[in-house]
Computed example of a mutant assay.
Amino acid sequence: MSAKNLHTITSPEDYQSKLSEDLERVSVTNFWAAWAEPCKEMGKVVAALAAKHENVLFLEVDAETLPDISESFEVESVPTFVVLKGHTLLGRVNGADAAELTKLVDLHSKKTTKPTSTSDKAPAPPLASVPTAEKEVTAAEPVEEKKEETTEELNARIKKIMDSDKVVLFMKGTPEAPRCGFSRQTVAILNEHNVKYTHFDILQDEAVRQGLKAYNDWPTFPQLIIGGELIGGLDILRESVENGEFKEALTNVGAV
């Protein structure tokens, strides 16, 4: 039997509603995915923490079923844990670090706050406005200025990567360690068909990640490139395998 303060989120609206019930309450959001083994063990940790800290709200979000929430917190891998007070970021744990998560929850669950009346509560901001740990910069931290690529320079670099091999996969993570379920499934299909390909980890280059969306007019990842041309994502790849277009495309560029 799960703790009363442990909830499975079903939609962005459900998530906002839960957070807005008490803006003085500390919450822990567990971003998970069914395919990731570490999530199963950390799920047990979350359940134990929920039973221990009844004053803390625990919310479980399927990172791939609810991408709007995941994108709002820039979740790149699972498990990821975000600790909030209302809509204010208190901390973040990336990965299956039970000790760090426990330490963070123990720390913030003990803090007492001044009660807030319902009339004093501010309306919930949109998900995209919730701060993420990566975006926080304190006054003491120097901000390194980098020369920005022009759109033309970025597009030239993207084209060079797309043309670097007969088959190129823009993915999250690497073939040995994919960092999202869609990338993992795409790699599995390519391996199943013994396709030799070059990969590019978009998580290591934000400019390419954002630029590629516009360049190929394709908003999601992974993106599979054959012969320098976009084939599509996982769904398109599956369809092309079933109707024979995938094999034909590989044959046309001499990749089989």
Rank of each mutant, 00 (worst) to 15 (best):
G91D: 02
V93S: 00
G95R: 02
A96I: 03
A96H: 06
A96M: 11
A96G: 08
A98Q: 15
A99F: 11
A99N: 12
E100P: 06
L101T: 05
T102W: 00
T102R: 00
T102L: 01
K103G: 07
K103C: 10
L104G: 01
L104I: 08
L104V: 10
D106T: 04
D106H: 02
D106A: 05
L107V: 07
H108T: 02
H108G: 00
H108I: 02
H108E: 10
S109Q: 13
K111E: 15
T116R: 11
T116C: 04
T116L: 14
S119P: 03
A124M: 15
P125N: 05
L127H: 06
A128S: 14
A128E: 08
S129C: 03
V130C: 05
V130Q: 04
V130T: 05
P131L: 03
T132P: 00
A133H: 05
K135L: 08
E136T: 12
E136R: 13
V137F: 00
V137T: 07
T138E: 10
T138H: 05
E141L: 12
V143P: 08
V143M: 03
V143F: 08
K146T: 13
K146A: 13
K147R: 13
K147L: 05
E148A: 15
E148G: 14
E148C: 09
E149A: 09
E149M: 15
T151D: 04
T151N: 06
T151A: 15
E152V: 12
E153S: 04
L154P: 02
N155H: 09
I158T: 00
K159Q: 15
K160I: 09
I161P: 00
M162Y: 06
D165Y: 10
D165H: 12
K166S: 01
L169P: 01
L169R: 09
